[in-house]
């Protein structure tokens, strides 16, 4: 009996080991392949010039600007809402009240809705109904909605992890509730909140479907929030599906990969700094 249990244990251990190693291998393979195909295409000119001609020679400059515009703008819209919502859920409504449970359930469901669904909603509501057109505003609002659940939940968890003793100590010194929240709770949770925001930005950064339907596909350097633009993923999608230029597509993919990796490493680093 004991022998059998031990054998089973070893088998499962081996299986899980194989599973985790294959995850790493697959990831490495993808990175290697994209790098092999894409890295040679990328140079300063590729980054800083416009696409030229119908073969999209040249670079991808406007799509980079559009991508950053959408990412930063959507994060700026969503962060205060997510943090405010998380504070309400954790500190004001009772954590296990029906309302909080509904909000959590809604957030968890919303975070698994495919992005194209956000796209079609954003198109119908922001682009058409509110008349914002294909624009940075429509795109960023849609992206903000898309990453709201993720940031809300990660912020909520970060706040719930602040030791109760900190709050007690703060109240004990005569802090009001708001002082305790702003000076102790948010301050302590800040690095982890930031981690969540950065991961959310990573998602906004690489989003395709939701952006194509709301920010449009025009190559443009957006200035005003009502300007449209094409982000890197959409550009990549068009280059690949319309068979315009696989080289440029891989170059774009490589850049996207590098920047997203950067987001994730940044988020990890911040998370690790909290651990200390």
């Amino acid at each position: 009996m004991y022998e059998l249990r031990k054998a089973l244990n070893n088998i499962f251990l081996t299986l899980t080991w194989i599973a985790s190693v294959s995850v790493i291998l697959i990831l490495l393979f993808i990175i290697a392949y994209i790098t092999y195909k894409g890295a040679p295409v990328v140079n300063l000119k590729f980054i800083t010039t416009w696409p030229q001609g119908y073969e999209a020679k040249g670079g991808i400059w406007p799509t980079i600007i559009t991508t950053f515009y959408l990412t930063i703008f959507s994060a700026a819209i969503v962060t205060p809402i997510a943090v405010g919502g998380a504070i309400y859920l954790t500190e004001y409504s009772k954590p296990f009240s029906r309302f909080s449970r509904y909000v959590r359930f809604a957030a968890d469901t919303l975070s698994s809705v495919p992005s194209i669904v956000y796209g079609i909603f954003g198109f119908a509501f922001f682009v058409i109904y509110l008349g914002f057109g294909w624009s940075m505003l429509s795109g960023s609002l849609t992206l903000a909605l898309m990453i709201l659940p993720l940031i809300l939940r990660s912020t909520e968890e970060a706040i719930l992890d602040v030791p109760y003793g900190y709050k007690e100590a703060s109240y004990g010194l005569g802090a009001t509730k708001w002082q305790t929240i702003s000076r102790v709770v948010l301050r302590t949770a800040f690095p982890r909140i930031l981690t969540g925001v950065i991961l959310g930005m990573g998602r906004a950064f690489g989003e395709t479907a939701a952006v194509m339907l709301t920010a449009g596909m025009a190559l443009n350097i957006p200035i005003s929030v009502f300007d449209g633009g094409r982000n890197m993923s959409s550009h990549l999608f068009l280059l690949a599906t319309e068979g315009i230029s696989l080289d440029a597509a891989f170059g774009t993919a490589f850049l996207l990969l590098v920047i997203i990796l950067f987001f994730n490493v940044g988020a990890k680093r911040i998370a690790r700094r909290v651990g200390k």
Binding site: P163, G165, Y166, E168, A169, S170, Y171, G172, L173, G174, A175, T176, V184, R187, T188
Partner: peptide, 20 residues
């Protein structure tokens, strides 16, 4: 209550220094 807690301070079992 805020003023009361200022006048009547409290030390807990765990010192709980703020992470600052």
């Amino acid at each position: 209550v805020v003023l009361l807690r200022k006048r009547v301070g409290m030390i807990f079992q765990q010192p709980n220094p703020f992470p600052m």
